[in-house]
Design a protein around this nucleic acid. Structure first.
Lengths: 187, 187
DNA sequence: AGGATCACTTGACCCATATCAAGAACGTCA
DNA sequence: TGACGTTCTTGATATGGGTCAAGTGATCCT
């Protein structure tokens, strides 16, 4: 549970009163390796913070999964668009390792937004960070070659190479496993 | 000024008291066709809502501009990442037509976030919408061919074809002007 | 431990789209 | 209005990365 408080407090400071209103809304959920946190077509019921494990956000296309992101300790996880819109998910969220996520139900979060203004602020700040991150990633995807994208990832998140299958990283970098394998060999 | 109230009220309802605290923070800014609302390297001072005109969000790469979005009536405009982080802009914002934008200074917005909780909510909701939009666009960029992306745009925003240079639309769709021209001919 | 399944590597070939080039059409402003 | 600078079109050619295929290596399961 502590991970939730620490994560929220990366953005805002909580009084004990606020925390005691917020804490009961969160529950732990365990997912075994390979299991789906959320599947395309379902409506995402919860917004999660990752306590442990690595998860993949992807969508199926032509019988293949295209990976658009990863989540790990302290980052958020889930099919956020579906969670917000209450419409069927377009993305899959898959646990790549055994994972423990701490989640909050949609209605509980809405309640907190109303009753605890500090949560509204947390929501805004985390979204700002996500949006800025997306913009930077977009620049990189568009301005770097396959090989440069590989180098950049190795430099920034070398641990990912150990944690997740190369085919997922390849897909995340918008290349085939073959191209990824060749890029890696050349370094 | 009315455009600001209408835009905010697409997300939240304002009391007269709230609006009279919010309204004075906004000011109109005129930009001539071709002028820069924000240039790479500057720090974005304002968050804008578009009163009139069309603007382009792009970044320079290899002596060419790669376009990542457009703004028009009622949508937001500006280099949001720079505005938030107070760091130099990575994107250019250019007025493609004579434009009138209504903007709020960074400090004024922060003040409103503190003093008017309804603005905090507006901020959260507009960010949610932006993020969901980004996710959907990401799926389209990755799963559709050049020709399909063209078709999708024509269907969804036919007015863009009239309003903005084809080379910018081509760049937005991740193709060269030549490929765009050929895609258009085949339809 | 052995077999099955899945992930990774490597090579040969291919194709969608980029690049280059040259001309036509359009806009703009002296 | 005409001339210059864009933008757009069209054709010829090049290429990065994808696809296909076959083999090697990991990992899991009973």
């Amino acid at each position: 549970m502590d991970i939730v408080r620490r994560t929220i407090e990366r953005y805002v400071t909580l009084t004990e009163a606020e925390w005691s209103a917020i804490a009961p809304c969160w529950r732990e959920y365990a997912f075994g390796r390979g299991s789906e946190v959320c599947a395309v077509g379902e409506v995402e019921q919860r917004f999660y913070i990752v306590k442990s494990g690595v998860q993949r956000l992807s969508f199926p296309h032509d019988g293949r999964d295209i990976c658009v992101g990863f989540a790990y300790d302290g980052s958020w996880c889930g099919e956020y668009a579906s969670f917000l819109t209450r419409k069927p998910a377009r993305f899959d969220v898959v646990a790549l390792t055994d994972s423990v996520l701490v989640g909050i139900e949609h209605d509980d979060l809405q309640k907190l937004y109303v009753e605890q203004p500090v949560m509204e602020r947390f929501g805004r700040l985390i979204l700002e960070e996500l949006l800025v991150g997306r913009a930077m990633r977009e620049i990189e995807q568009l301005s770097l070659s396959a090989e440069e994208r590989f180098d950049r990832l190795v430099k920034r998140s070398p641990q990912l190479l150990q944690l997740v299958p190369q085919k997922d990283i390849a897909s995340y970098l918008r290349m085939t496993p073959e191209t990824f394998s060749r890029a890696r060999k050349r370094r």
